[in-house]
Computed example of a mutant assay.
Amino acid sequence: MKKSSFGLVFLSVLTTLDTGCSATPSNIPPVGRGGEPPNLDSLVFWVSNGLEPYGIACRKYSRVYCLESYRTRKVGYSSELNTTLQNGMVPSATKAWFSVLIKERWDIINMIDPTGPALCCEEQSQKYLLYGYLRARMDPEQYMDKLTEYWDEDNKPLNILSARYVPMICMNLVVEVGFGPGQLSRNIMAVVVGAPYVILGQEYADYGIPGIESAIFDYINPGQNLTFHWFKHNIMCKEHPWICGHVVQQPSQNYEVGESSGTGGNKKSQRKNSSKKGKEKMG
């Protein structure tokens, strides 16, 4: 489905759901960006939903979440593809190398192609070329590490937040979140300033994430509660328990991926060990 079709679906749903909700307070000054992508290093996810273009695309693969990419800053950015990495690898070789890596892992880290959620690996490899190769001069292994580095919860504050206002519930639906260093950047073009943010849960069967309760986050400081720890344990691990260190049943064997993180009481070293074992699971 093309993006334009996504937009039409979203507008149609909004029209159907609009109950004439009154505007929320607008005396809180907007924070962050307009329509331009932020210049940040960030591990970026889409939240699955039945209302918004990328949430709808994600929902075709997962009813929980999808991994968009690991975005990198434009520092040292070059649009030239005729340069080589320090190890002598050229772009075509690095892209082919990353394609091999992501082909084995995209489905267990939910890194989809939004135009074809069951497809791999052209779109995923293009994101490596942009964010990994051109901007950061990472080799494929380094970029894959960034995509799967989930143990370091303490150094991943919320730094990207995109949402769309839904009149039916008088709140801003969380569409995209990113975690990494730097000040929070949020897309304010489609939200109502001052209205709380929300991730829809099982109360909204046609639109929300099954198995969780809807979560509401304060407009002024959403990152206080919408942390990577919260997103990991309440969203990611609902679909992939290995990320939090639970035992995962596979057709041919069990994988014991560290100790259970449960409610998040484990120490940082235990989370790191769990993630490393998780990578062993991914091969």
Rank of each mutant, 00 (worst) to 15 (best):
G76A: 09
N221H: 13
P114C: 04
L130E: 12
P91Y: 09
L119Q: 14
T83H: 15
V44G: 00
T227I: 08
D152F: 04
P140W: 06
C170V: 10
C21A: 15
C21L: 02
S162E: 14
F179L: 09
P25N: 12
R271W: 11
F231D: 01
A195M: 03
N110M: 04
V75H: 11
P181W: 04
P241A: 06
C244K: 08
D41N: 15
L147V: 00
G278F: 00
S269G: 11
P29A: 11
R59P: 06
L8N: 13
I160V: 13
Y255N: 15
D218F: 08
I188A: 10
G55Q: 02
G7Y: 08
G182R: 08
Q202N: 11
R105I: 13
M282H: 03
Y143W: 13
T19D: 14
D145T: 04
F217K: 06
M89R: 09
E213W: 05
M138E: 05
I160F: 05
M236A: 04
V47W: 00
M171R: 11
G208K: 03
I209E: 00
F98K: 01
Y65E: 02
N155I: 04
C244H: 05
L81C: 13
C66D: 06
K232L: 11
Q224C: 08
G182Y: 08
E141C: 12
I209N: 00
A57H: 02
I216P: 00
L200I: 10
C121M: 04
Q253T: 01
L129N: 01
D152T: 01
A215R: 08
Y197G: 02
G262R: 09
I188E: 12
L226M: 12
E176P: 03
F6I: 02
N172R: 07
L184D: 09
S275A: 13
K60M: 14
P37E: 08
G283D: 12
V64K: 03
I243M: 14
R33F: 06
F217L: 07
G116D: 15
E239N: 07
V174P: 00
S99M: 14
G223L: 04
C121F: 00
G116E: 12
G194A: 07
F6R: 10
G182Q: 07
F98Y: 10
A205G: 06
K272L: 13
V192T: 07
G208W: 02
R186F: 00
S261P: 00
T83Q: 15
S62W: 03
H246W: 03
N221C: 03
G20Q: 09
P117E: 04
R73C: 10
K281H: 05
G201K: 05
P181C: 04
